[in-house]
């Protein structure tokens, strides 16, 4: 709180600083929201928490770095290739580690995903080393003036792309028969297989989908916050926090909670100290869970039925 006083002396300045902090909170929060969405998609079709979700984000960034840097591909070509590569990794992960198990317990599946995340992280260190990489911004780096704060064009890209992803996902789940089948699996798995839905294929699809979403998040955030092989863990943790905060199994809750954690974190970093930045989101999460264990937007009734 000591650091707060001098800032608050100038009213005008503090307003613009807070606006600035909120904007950067929105930026990072949108990434947490994407990661949380990935958690939700897999959770809904399998009731497992995929702790490798953060690694998908890291891999997205890393592939993009290699495609744009050493391979010198234009951004718009590299983007889909990087997403595809990570999607394939997500698919392979499901095929090799999840699919072969017969009637596994939820706990053992979760432990497998932790093992998977360690493996992917190790693989990334092997492939890219321990360096931190950057990516050029998608367009100019010249900040745009917004009210009294400035906003990077990359932030606009990030928000735009996330808006698109959320919209497309919503349309997919609401209007396509496969999307409906995924929701049916989430609602009642035995009944889904009795109407002829291939549940194992839906599980595979959910891994592919959340790997793709993770990769997109990694690609769009790297120009702003850089990427290295270890970044997946903390992004995964924050995204997990957002997923739980929003009420597991509730994608829209996850998006809102992601933004919330991002904004709280950024305000804390700017007004108090950036040392506590990572802790703040988790403290918020713990507090909410003490008061409302089902998360901000989860119903208590549903959470009783949850296996995890």
């Amino acid at each position: 709180m000591i650091g707060l006083a001098p800032i608050l002396e100038s009213q005008e300045m503090s307003a613009s600083i807070i606006l600035q902090l909120i904007l950067s909170g929105v930026t990072i929060g949108s990434i947490y929201a994407m990661v949380a969405l990935g958690f939700n998609i897999i959770y809904n079709s399998t009731s497992i928490i995929n702790f490798a979700q953060g690694e998908f984000v890291m891999l997205g960034g890393m592939f993009m770095v290699s495609l744009v840097g050493p391979l010198n591909l234009p951004m718009w070509v590299a983007f889909p290739i990087a997403v595809l590569a990570v999607t394939l990794i997500g698919t392979a992960f499901e095929r090799l580690c999840i699919h072969p198990l017969k009637m596994p317990s939820v706990l053992s599946l979760i432990i497998i995903t932790i093992a998977g995340s360690i493996l992917l992280k190790g693989g990334a260190m092997f492939a890219w080393g321990k360096e931190t990489f950057s990516l050029p911004h998608f367009s100019t780096e010249k900040p745009i003036l917004l009210l009294e704060a400035t906003i990077l064009p990359q932030t606009v890209w990030i928000l735009g792309i996330i808006g698109m992803v959320v919209l497309l996902l919503a349309l997919f789940f609401r209007f396509t028969i496969v999307g409906k089948a995924m929701r049916a699996c989430a609602a009642n798995r035995p009944a889904a297989s009795l109407v002829g839905i291939n549940v194992k294929r839906i599980v595979l699809l959910s891994f592919a989908l959340s790997a793709a979403i993770g990769a997109i998040a990694g690609i769009i955030i790297t120009p702003i916050s850089l990427m290295d092989y270890e970044r997946g863990a903390i992004l995964g943790l924050k995204g997990f926090g957002a997923a739980v905060l929003g009420g597991l199994g509730n994608p829209m809750g996850a998006v809102v909670a992601g933004f919330l954690i991002g904004i709280v974190e950024s305000l804390c970093a700017g007004l108090i100290s950036s040392h506590y930045k990572d802790a703040v989101g988790l403290v918020v999460l713990l507090m909410v869970l003490f008061i409302k264990p089902s998360g901000l937007f989860g119903s208590a009734q549903v959470s009783k039925l949850k296996k995890f």
Binding site: I177, K180, A181, R183, A184, A187, N188, P190, A191, A192, L194, V195, G196, I197
Partner: peptide
């Protein structure tokens, strides 16, 4: 099969439930 205990897809609409019957 119509399984024991009315196994609907509770959060999905009636129409969606029927569509999925024809998956």
């Amino acid at each position: 099969q119509v399984a024991e205990g009315r196994q609907i897809f509770a959060p999905l609409t009636v129409l969606e439930n029927l569509e999925l019957g024809a998956y």
